[in-house]
Design a protein around this nucleic acid. Structure first.
Ligand SMILES: [Mn+2]
Ligand SMILES: [Mn+2]
Ligand SMILES: [Zn+2]
Ligand SMILES: [Zn+2]
Lengths: 141, 141
DNA sequence: ACTAGGAATGCGAATGATTTTCAGTATTAT
DNA sequence: ATAATACTGAAAATCATTCGCATTCCTAGT
């Protein structure tokens, strides 16, 4: 039972160590956007001798290998998610920290058009929406 | 000759010290997106005894008072610009670091619609495009 | 399976941006 | 002018992340 990410690492010819296998598994099983500390915490449950430095190194390696994506939700730390899934963006509930994913082809098209009009080819982009639930608002009135 | 930002600070009832006056002036005169070090550098030209700690404190104060906006272009440090101007986003040239501002009401409308559909009211949002010039690409071919 | 050599790990120290602490100083209302 | 209070500079503290280095682990070649 090798994880999706482990398979990807093998394809890319990365040396597979025990800790990389564990971290790959953690990331393959994650359906959220964990930060490094959280990945480390989950990795320790599988193998209690993985150091945080190795998690940092591995996250960077996987990011450079394009198998995971680094996100930034405005607090100081980097969040990660498996790459390759459908392109999407995030709406962050500022009250609870809950993250909702969304995608919108119109948005992507407009963004492409804007870059083209400005004479640029897009190499990356980021879009995040921070919000509060509408129903909580009603409650206040 | 009090600067725009100084006027805003006075309106908000902030205590006006020499260093705040200087930093307000620097920010009022800026037409780019300086980071804290750069604001400090420019402030020192006006008054050479302003400490970087005070610049950090004042930037935070001004941000909380909503007279400036904090930006994040992906490198580790915060950038700032005067708030209140027309809402816009940024395209960052990854080769040169050049920043191009743009705005697009369609984009804003779609973003509002998405949030509403997800049951949220937007309290903040960010959109940046990172790109490389099209003409440089042609040159390569 | 065995081994050599290069790469990866764990630990702690180093970094870089930002914040905080604290003693001294400036600002504002009286 | 004075007192109360907020602000400042300098250095220490934080926090996330990276690095240095001695040790250990893979993997290709035997
Ligand atoms: Mn996601
Ligand atoms: Mn701008
Ligand atoms: Zn997109
Ligand atoms: Zn916008």
């Amino acid at each position: 039972m090798i994880s999706r990410l482990e398979a990807l690492c093998l394809e890319k010819g990365l040396k597979m160590t025990g800790q990389r296998r564990v971290i790959s598994q953690v990331l393959s099983e994650a359906d959220d956007h964990p930060d490094v500390e959280e990945v480390h915490r989950r990795a320790l449950l599988i193998d209690p001798r993985i150091s945080i430095a190795t998690v940092y190194r591995t996250m960077r390696l996987l990011e450079e290998a394009q198998v995971i994506e680094r996100l930034d939700f405005g607090d100081g730390r980097a969040r990660y998610e498996e790459a390759g899934a459908d392109h999407h963006h995030h709406l962050i509930d500022t009250r609870t920290g809950r993250v909702i994913e969304f995608s919108c082809s119109e948005l992507e098209a407009i963004k492409e058009r804007i870059a083209r009009e400005l004479g640029y080819r897009i190499v990356a982009h980021r879009l995040e929406i921070y919000g509060v639930p509408l129903d909580e608002e009603e409650g206040k009135k």
